[in-house]
Computed example of a mutant assay.
Amino acid sequence: MTSKTTKKKPISEDAIKVLIAEDNAVSRKSLSSQLESLGFNVVAAAATGEEVCSLFPELKPDLIIMDIKMPKMDGIEAAKVITKHASIPIILVTGHSSETVISRAMESGVGVFAYLLKPITKKDLLPAIKVAFARHNEFQTLKSEFSDLKDALETRKLVERAKGILMKRLTIPEDEAFKLLQTQSQKENKKLKEIAETVITASRML
């Protein structure tokens, strides 16, 4: 019998550079292999939050995927450190779907835009990566409206709530919900924050 091997897509020069952090060696190798098989360029595989914080300035990754639970510095704390110095979309990995943990992860730093539940599969990776980049681009749009990063982060929370309302009521995907908010913002010549607040207020009356 021959052992099955994972076919890897050739890594192109313009492939998305990914920095990963996972303290479990088996999980770290598995995640790296899955990403490479999808055509991503894994520039490094760190074992701790401290290590990923020291690596990202030099490696300049396009995306960071790291576990929440790591020794010394967990993924959430590492995300806070990273986003103080650079705007990089970050995906956090968790072993359980606790709403408290996920909420803390998503709101802890401006760079945390998606999460993955263990065990990670290739079919989960691509959607999470697409969501992370889409939300990162949305946040860049929000930052252009505010000089203060704290205001931009607070607005992001409101926009996420408004998107959720539109997605549920209109049965539309996340990107379309954001486009609706943007279109209304331009049409009424108002900031996205104001449009999001209007959607949230209206939903409470229905």
Rank of each mutant, 00 (worst) to 15 (best):
N137D: 15
I68P: 03
T121F: 07
P89A: 06
A79W: 00
D67T: 00
L158V: 03
K143S: 11
I64T: 06
P61D: 00
R135P: 12
L149Y: 04
T155W: 02
L59V: 01
A132M: 04
E58P: 03
L126G: 05
L125C: 11
L149K: 09
K163N: 11
K60Y: 00
E77N: 11
V81G: 10
G75S: 01
E107F: 11
T121Y: 09
L153K: 10
R161E: 12
D124N: 13
T83P: 05
I64W: 04
A105N: 04
H96N: 13
V93G: 12
D74I: 04
K122C: 13
L63D: 06
T83W: 07
S144I: 12
K72F: 15
K118N: 06
A132Y: 06
M73I: 05
H85G: 15
V159Y: 03
A134R: 11
A79N: 03
F146E: 14
I129N: 02
A134S: 15
E58I: 14
A128W: 06
A162L: 02
L116D: 01
D124C: 10
I82H: 00
M66K: 09
F146A: 11
I88W: 01
V93R: 10
K84W: 05
L142R: 00
K80R: 11
S87H: 14
L158R: 02
